[in-house]
């Protein structure tokens, strides 16, 4: 009997496959394609204290095996989320994780307080590259990562996941700062800052000029970062970045991820998370693994 259950810093999942924030709205759209109860967890679109309209269009540019986005945290605000979006997700038997972003530490704390225990975990977004204030600014220096994590943790009634930016020199020291400040788990990676230019108009394709790169193109970077961080920390890791198949998911788990999230590939294949769960089961069966821990982090590294 296969056991796909996993405990992510106090958050119990029936399987290790979740959806990545910002690629999944609030779940409604994908509920037309499969039963959301099959998912390990749903991570909702990044929330802010007040509603945000986001950046100007174009907000997307396709790049080799990937895409750039500059949505800029368009969302209805944390209160409208609780009132209008969360009740729908609560119809499903799957944990809901709220991704939160703010301009100040106080805003993050207020959001954690408002969310209380109405969600199953909070993902601290200190890695969004598409907003002028806050976002990634909190996530690129050890002392600010420590400070924000420590502060939000005090207001957090549910497990706190800190989402790390890859746009740093040394992700390990950032990860250690989050762990030291009390993060229950880490998720990585957010998007890589990138840019694309239309050679005919000689203008950037994104109205925001720069945006976050995601999709299969970033996977090797993400796997490397998960591998490095997993060796350094003792808290669970949610690995993401370009996962498009069960093989990719297994690769992240071998690198040290306890769970994985599917992001950009939801746009290509709406049923991708479900197919990945099935693929992991077959891989475990074939290799006679009973639990995820039988192969988690079991990369044969020199």
């Amino acid at each position: 009997m296969l056991n796909l259950e996993v405990n992510i810093g106090g958050l119990r999942l029936k399987n290790p496959v979740m959806t990545a924030s910002g690629t999944y709205g609030f779940g409604k759209e994908y509920s037309e394609y499969y039963d959301l109860s099959q998912l390990g967890a749903v991570v909702v679109k990044g929330l802010t204290l007040k509603p945000r309209e986001g950046n100007k269009a174009p907000r997307i540019a396709e790049t080799p095996a990937g895409m750039l986005n500059s949505v800029g945290l368009q969302n209805p605000g944390v209160e409208a989320f609780l009132e209008h979006e969360l009740p729908f997700l609560r119809k499903y038997n799957t944990p809901v994780i709220a991704n939160i972003a703010g301009n100040t530490v106080e805003e993050y704390c207020q959001m954690a307080e408002k969310l209380g225990s109405q969600v199953d975990a909070i993902e601290l977004n200190i890695s969004c590259p598409n907003v002028k204030e806050g976002g990634v600014a909190f996530g690129t220096k050890c002392d600010s990562v420590y400070n924000i994590t420590k502060n939000v943790k005090q207001f957090c009634k549910v497990p706190l996941i800190v989402k790390l930016s890859p746009n740093v020199t040394d992700i390990v020291e950032i990860a250690l700062s989050a762990e030291e400040a009390g993060a229950d788990s880490l998720s990585l990676i957010n998007t890589l800052l990138g840019m694309a230019i239309d050679i005919n108009s000689r203008k950037p394709i994104l109205a925001n000029v720069v945006g976050g790169l995601s999709g299969p193109a970033v996977k090797p970077v993400a796997v490397r970062m998960v591998y490095q961080v997993a060796k350094a920390v003792n808290i669970p890791i949610i690995g993401m970045g370009g996962i498009s198949s069960w093989q990719d998911a297994v690769e992240f788990i071998l690198a040290g991820a306890d769970a994985v999230a599917v992001g950009t590939y939801n746009f290509v294949n709406p049923a991708a998370p479900i197919e990945i769960i099935e693929g992991i089961k077959k891989y475990m069966d074939k290799n006679c693994y009973k639990n995820l821990s039988d192969f988690k982090g079991k990369i044969q590294a020199c």
Binding site: Y24, K45, A57, P58, R59, I60, N69, V71, F267, P270
Partner: peptide, 15 residues
Amino acid sequence: ERMGCGIGACLVCAC
């Protein structure tokens, strides 16, 4: 408008 998911989840095709 340039689109991503096509079903309303990714919010890139803002008008």
